[in-house]
Design a protein around this nucleic acid. Structure first.
Lengths: 136, 136
DNA sequence: TTGCGTGCAAAGGTTTTGCATGGCA
DNA sequence: TGCCATGCAAAACCTTTGCACGCAA
C-alpha cells in the first residue's frame, strides 16, 4: 500500500526517520537535516509524505502540547505496542522513553475495569524528571 | 491574586468556566457562548485572561493533540491533584473523566521507581472507548 | 488621574491546499 | 503516456502582540 512511486525526496525522508528511530523528529528538523545534506525538500512534501506514513502506520505522530510542532517517529517493531511509554518533563522538556512491566498492569486495568483500550504509544505522561526535581 | 480589576468581560468568562467545571472548554467555545448571550468579547481578551487564570492556577490548560485548540477547565478543588484522570477516545473524540484508586498506585510507582513526578492533571491517555470498541 | 484592560488589526508559527510543472512507471 | 508527486505561493488555523482608546479604582 501507500506509496506507489519511489522518489528521491521520499527516500531521503524515510531514511532519516528510520536511522533515528529512537528520536522524535519534527517536520522542520527533517527539512533542516536535508538542507545540511544539500537537498532541499519543500515543507508541503514533507507534511504530505508524513501523513501517508502515519496513515500506513510506518511512523507514529505525537503532539507534545502547547505551541510545539508535532513530532514523528519511525516504528521499529510493528507488533510491540505494550511495553513502551513516554514521559515528558515539563521542566526541561526532555522526553523519556520508559520500559516497565508495571505498565502492562495499568493497561490491563484500564481495559478490564474501565472498558478502555489505551494506546500507550500515543500517550504522553507529563510531569517533572529527577533532575528538575532536584534543582528545587 | 491575579486580576486587580474586575471587568464585565472577565466576569462573563469566569462564570462560564466555573459553571461548566466538568467540561473542557476552548477559547472559541467561550467566544461562541458569550456571543449567544449577546456579549461579544474579543479573542485577544479571552486568551489573555485565560493565561492569567492558568498562571494563578484557577483553571487548567490541556492540549489534546493534533491540530485541536487548547482546552481550559476550572479547577473545582485546588488541593485534589491525584485522583482525577483523563481518557480521550481517538475514535469518537469523547473525553472521559476517570476516578480510580489504582491511579494512585501508578502515580507512586512512577515517583518511587522511575523518579518521575507525574502531573496527572496535565496528562491525557489516548485510546478507544467502550462504544467505539463495540462498533467494530 | 493612573494605569490596567479591551478591541482591533496585524503578525507569528505550524500545517494544509490549489495549481501548474516535473518525474516515475 | 498516464498518473502521481513536487514546489511554490497562498490560505487556513490557532494564538500572540502592538497600539490607541476605554474604563475600574
Amino acid at each position: 500500500m501507500a506509496e506507489l512511486y519511489k522518489t528521491k525526496q521520499r527516500e531521503l525522508i524515510y531514511n532519516f526517520l528510520k536511522e533515528n528511530s529512537s528520536l522524535h523528529i519534527t517536520a522542520d528538523e527533517i527539512s533542516e537535516h536535508l538542507k545540511k545534506q544539500g537537498s532541499r525538500v519543500s515543507m508541503a512534501t514533507i507534511y504530505r509524505y508524513l501523513d501517508r506514513l502515519v496513515a500506513s502506520k510506518v511512523v507514529r505522530k505525537y503532539h507534545l502540547g502547547n505551541g510545539e510542532s508535532a513530532c514523528y517517529q519511525y516504528i521499529e517493531d510493528t507488533s510491540d505496542c505494550s511495553g513502551h511509554f513516554h514521559l515528558k518533563c515539563t521542566g526541561c522538556g526532555e522526553l523519556i522513553h520508559m520500559e516497565c512491566s508495571d505498565l502492562e498492569k495499568f493497561f490491563c486495568h484500564l481495559r478490564d475495569e474501565h472498558n478502555f483500550r489505551a494506546d500507550l504509544t500515543q500517550t504522553v505522561v507529563y510531569g517533572e524528571c529527577e533532575k528538575c526535581l532536584l534543582k528545587k
